[in-house]
Amino acid sequence: MAPILEARDLTKRYAIGPQVVDALRGVSLSVDPGEFVAIMGPSGSGKSTLLHLLGGLDRPTSGEVVLDGIPIHRLSDDEATRLRREKTGFVFQAFNLIPLLTVYENVALPLTIAGTSLRRRDVAERIAAVIELVDLADRLRARPDQLSAGEQQRVAVARALVTRPAILLADEPTGNLDYASGSELLGALWRSCEEEGQTIVLVTHDAKAAAYADRVCVVEDGRIVDEILLGRRADHSAAPLIGRLAELGL
């Protein structure tokens, strides 16, 4: 089966004042359909930069990114925008919900932006399904300021899943959550992958979060230094991963 996402020899260079920083130095990665991949690394390792390039939020200095057969590094801004609308879903560390819009409206936002041709009933059913997935069916009319941090992040996950994206990209989604909320969130992501075949790429510095993935790519200093195969596991134990990281000295 062809990969749903492929990155070949990606580099990203930034100029910060007089200095030039190489955030990525020739990273290659491929993700199969339905796979849950985690990208791990310490702060400043380039993992978020990698995620931005994979999702078409930014352009590489060199290299290629092919999403579902489309070379996104060659697209214009509008074409990349349309691709994101149709093929990707994002979850960020700061929940980034639109205040004063209800949970329902926030989840529906990608469909509203896309101007879907779906019938209203189908839209409602889809929204209900993702809301059910994140276990927020009783909070549809609430506004973000009426939700807990965990609930807000679950709304963000539902929003990311509502368009059935080819790939869901999550950048430190549990970074602002307590342990219990974080576990709930990661459980929801894993279920979407297990039950609906959603492809997920998760960026995290937390081994316990990365342990939910099928495979972990370890990034350090702008390069992938190791890949750790964990397989699809219902227990999400972090022990094997932590052990392997210790061997790597991370």
């Binding site: 925008t81 609308r85 149709e86 980034n96 936002l109 990608p110 932006i113 929003r159």
Partner: peptide, 8 residues
């Protein structure tokens, strides 16, 4: 976020 979600 809106741009990330596909708003031009």
């Amino acid at each position: 976020i809106l741009r990330a979600l596909g708003m031009t």
